Simulated scan of single mutants.
Amino acid sequence: MSNKITTLFQIQYPIIQAGMIWNSGWKLASASSNSGILGLIGAGSMYPEVLREHIQKCKKATDRPFGVNVPMLYPNIEEIMNIIVEEEVKIVFTSAGNPKTWTAWLKERGVTVVHVVSSVKFALKAQEAGVDAVVAEGFEAGGHNGREESTTLTLIPMVREALEIPLIAAGGIATGQGMLAAMILGADGVQVGSRFVASIESSAHQAFKEEVVSAKEGATHLTLKELAPVRVIKNKFYNDIVELYKTSPSIDDLKNLLGRARSKRGMFEGDLEEGELEIGQIAGLIHDIKPVAQIVEDMLSEYEVAKQNVQTIF
């Protein structure tokens, strides 16, 4: 399966394993890359030296390309970028910030840069900044999201119409059928997050993985738009947010409720009541926890079957 994305990253299949906080350590990234897709380490939940350790372990675990996802709103960004270059990581996905800030600096050092966006407006800004590709992420996605609430079904063709560089679709994609649909809409590849949370190699707590598997339609909601929009599973913490909104809270009120390390508490430590449990709407289609290699194999098989089924429709 060869196209712009496989050529850009030198991978077998145009699938990117999303670099999710508290889920995407070196084990998940290396297993993904060893399966022929692009694995990403999620730097957002790592102190700089922890990130360096994960990069070094990933390099020992795979001889295939892998990258690092860097949310630019996090502290220590300069140290993180310097570590990435020092460790000779050649692919960086940036998000939650202005792509102009780091794109030129990274590209001058031989790094391929991809930026995550949630609208046509920001996709064009990323292209103008010189990124090599864009991830357009729909409203269905888990974790931090855009404020526009554009679904993947509408976002991908609109971004494709406006963009000249390669396009990666994200948000609500966990199957081969979803992958085919995104590519028919104009994507050159897909980024998959939630499906890889429920993998053996994910660094998420087992209790969180099981919560994802048990999630049904309507189990998640996008909230905290005044801070940074985030899609979470409805639990006690979510219900506390709902109750607080009834009082017309200030930004400080919301920040006080959120507190510190809420996502670590939920996804990494397994507190299903008080933790922030970030996952996409597609969780309702995730029914088991299995190895990354099997997830990739299943997606590719589903993709091929879906292509054949589409041909029988017309």
Rank of each mutant, 00 (worst) to 15 (best):
P229E: 08
W22R: 09
N98W: 09
S203T: 07
L51M: 11
G275Y: 05
Q206L: 11
T103W: 00
S214M: 05
M46F: 13
E211P: 01
P157G: 07
G266A: 02
T247M: 07
S33M: 04
M81F: 11
P75W: 00
Q56H: 05
N235D: 12
S30G: 12
A306Y: 13
I55Y: 03
V242K: 09
M267K: 04
T101R: 15
A126W: 01
G39K: 07
L180W: 07
E88R: 12
E49F: 03
S35C: 03
T152I: 08
A293L: 10
S301Q: 13
R260N: 13
K125D: 09
L222G: 12
K290L: 14
E273S: 14
G275D: 08
P249C: 10
I83L: 08
K234G: 00
S95F: 10
V131P: 01
I37G: 06
T223R: 05
M179Y: 10
I168T: 00
I5V: 09
I289R: 04
Q311M: 10
P229C: 12
E78D: 14
M72K: 03
I55K: 05
I15A: 07
F314L: 12
E86F: 05
G142V: 10
K225W: 15
I165T: 02
L244S: 11
G189W: 15
Y13W: 06
G171E: 01
A126M: 08
E87M: 00
N145V: 14
E148A: 14
A96C: 14
I241F: 06
A169T: 01
A61S: 15
P75Q: 12
G138Y: 11
D288T: 13
A215F: 06
V111T: 02
F93S: 07
M46K: 12
K209I: 09
K27W: 04
S35R: 04
E226V: 13
V114F: 08
G36V: 11
N309P: 11
M299V: 08
L180V: 11
R265E: 11
A219C: 04
K225M: 13
V310N: 10
A207W: 10
I55F: 03
S119D: 02
P75I: 10
A170I: 04
I295Q: 07
S45D: 10
H287C: 13
A215Q: 06
I313P: 01
R231W: 05
G67T: 00
I77N: 09
N69K: 13
W22I: 15
V190M: 14
V116M: 06
G284S: 15
M46Q: 06
S95A: 15
G146V: 08
H205A: 04
